[in-house]
Design a protein around this nucleic acid. Structure first.
Ligand SMILES: [Mn+2]
Ligand SMILES: [Mn+2]
Ligand SMILES: [Zn+2]
Ligand SMILES: [Zn+2]
Lengths: 133, 133
DNA sequence: ATGCTTAATTCAATTGAGTTGCAAATATCC
DNA sequence: GGATATTTGCAACTCAATTGAATTAAGCAT
């Protein structure tokens, strides 16, 4: 039988989660390390992020440069923990944001089963579009 | 004016392209280095891959583990060089394949512009599905 | 409240993908 | 063949992420 280990609540974990929940863009490990106001080792941050994903508190997304970014779950619970909307990665401001209401429509061929999805569009975001020449 | 430099055809470049064109799955740099039958430095392989992407001969995709993988262009020419179909990354065999005829349907919000797309589904592929208990 | 168990944190070392600078080799054009 | 720009090879480096092992601390039971 798989031994389910109990996830503990620590100061650092709470702070990382708060940071991610307050952000309106996806944060990388480096972003978090930089913005975190409690002292916390970088390896610990990696492990906290893994734990938060495991706990269904945050989602992980691999950006088009290969770097992992994290964002808070919005409408997830124990039954529904998915992350099927579109993500936008801006070439100019280099920010990744969730476009929660845009869910791509497609159908997998027979025999394939889906566990997770990574759907990212790279381009220029509204903010950068409007502040450009 | 941007100086367009002429891309040369070399033994190594041809071999890398042939390898990618013959594969029916996406290949990583490591895959190519391992399978290439001509002697070629690993840095050279990275540069050849960049050049082939630049030449519109292959596409680059960042897999959900953050590693870049490459696959041949199928219906691309100078005018149309896009890569909008779905990709499938199998959790079991760890192979990434193009599902060329499945193109996700979605609409970007006003003000956003798209330059490239990364659309990958992770799960179990047909082959693994049929050979499982 | 005290102790016990197990999870979390830390530190140092390591892996792995990818990049950079520069000298030597070579493809292409004349 | 010779000139020239591109490509290659090598060594060193960056950056994200992982591992192992020792220490610290959370949560539970007594
Ligand atoms: Mn999201
Ligand atoms: Mn493809
Ligand atoms: Zn932007
Ligand atoms: Zn498979």
């Amino acid at each position: 039988m798989a031994v389910t280990k109990i996830s503990r609540s620590t100061q650092a974990k709470q702070s990382v989660l708060a940071l991610i929940e307050e952000a309106n863009i996806a944060l990388s490990h480096a972003d978090i390390e930089e913005q975190l106001n409690v002292k916390c080792n970088r390896v610990t941050i990696y492990r906290i992020l893994d734990r938060l994903v495991e706990d269904d508190k945050i989602h992980k997304l691999v950006d088009m440069d290969g770097v992992s970014k994290y964002m808070a779950c919005v409408a997830c619970n124990d039954d529904h923990h998915h992350h099927h909307h579109l993500h936008f990665s801006c070439k100019q401001c280099e920010q990744v944001s969730c476009l929660h209401h845009i869910i791509p429509s497609f159908q997998l061929p027979k025999g394939y089963s889906m566990h997770e999805l990574n759907f990212t569009v790279r381009g220029i975001c509204v903010d950068c579009e409007s502040t450009s020449p």
